[in-house]
Design a protein around this nucleic acid. Structure first.
Length: 276
DNA sequence: CTGGGGATGGGGCCC
DNA sequence: TGGGCCCCATCCCCA
């Protein structure tokens, strides 16, 4: 049951990138090391022990922006747009050296982070609603998120970056806008989570956990209205609808109500609402 | 045909 | 960046 919005929308200039995938999968720190090297230059002489270097390294905004903009990347991405005026191609963090002994370092680091936020919003096509730290809105679909990471993941999975590579699955013809989305998709081919009892394989560990309950008979989700129990919370939720006097899904034609949208769909497909 | 349970896939969010 | 959890959606099967 593939979700089509994960897949890249256009199929032009298809560019398989297995080498990049393999390189990244082989070295999970590929994105981190360049940032560390850049940040360590700000925190000499002891970058390994400096809390500033650590915070710089762990700052997801710095890592994300650096990886996307190519500022710290050994292999720059192909920009389809010119640099944003006033920001050039250099992040502010490289312009204000920080030292652990500097008493003003924390505040300056905070200011730099604010600048990074500004850059990332400008460069990546993000719009902010009011306070930048409260709401992040996607330019393309206008969905809003409370955190930047939430918006970033949404952009990775559902909307296209203004300048990006496309990652093609080597097992099928699907293409994705981010390496992470591709990795997640590839798991549906490789199915690395295997049930030791029956050999059935799954793409994610929690799917395997749910499957194992079918062997053990464990049903941790009990209905508060009857004695039934379920192995899956979603199935309990569907069951709870059967106790409800008000069915959630109503036919627009005959006003008949159903406990599930699938039942309503089947009802409509059966011909109740031929025009809908 | 309908209603409901079982099983599974995938995105969002948090840590 | 990935794992875990939650939620939603969907398909299959059976009474």
């Amino acid at each position: 049951m593939p979700r089509s919005f994960l897949v890249k929308k256009h199929l032009s200039h298809k560019k398989p990138n297995y080498g990049t995938l393999d390189a990244h999968s082989g070295d999970p720190h590929t994105h981190v090391i360049p940032v560390l090297s850049s940040c360590s230059s700000l925190t000499s002489p002891s970058p390994d022990e400096s809390p500033i270097s650590r915070s710089c390294l762990l700052n997801p905004a710095v890592r994300l922006v650096s990886s996307i903009c190519g500022v710290f990347e050994p292999q720059p991405l192909h920009h389809s747009r010119p640099p944003i005026e006033g920001h050039a191609n250099t992040l502010p963090v490289t312009q204000s050296p920080l030292r652990a002994s500097d008493p003003a370092a924390p505040q300056r680091l905070y200011n730099d982070r604010a600048l990074v936020s500004d850059v990332k919003v400008s460069l990546l096509g993000f719009a902010s609603k009011g306070n930048i730290q409260e709401h992040f809105e996607c330019f393309d679909c206008h969905k809003t998120y409370f955190t930047f990471s939430g918006l970033a993941k949404h952009r990775q999975l559902q909307c296209e970056w203004p300048c990006q590579k496309y990652f093609s699955c080597k097992y099928c013809d699907k293409e994705y806008v981010s390496l992470g989305a591709l990795k997640m998709h590839i798991r549906t081919h490789t199915l690395p989570c295997v049930c030791k009892l029956c050999g059935k394989a799954f793409s994610r560990p929690w799917l395997l956990q749910g499957h194992i309950r079918t062997h053990t008979g464990e049903k941790p989700f009990s209905c508060p209205h009857c004695s039934r129990a379920f192995a899956d919370r979603s199935n309990l939720r569907a069951h709870l609808q059967t106790h409800s006097d008000v069915k959630k899904y109503q036919c627009r034609c005959c006003s008949k109500t159903f406990s599930r949208i699938s039942l309503l769909s089947k009802h409509e497909e059966a011909g109740c609402c031929p025009t809908s």
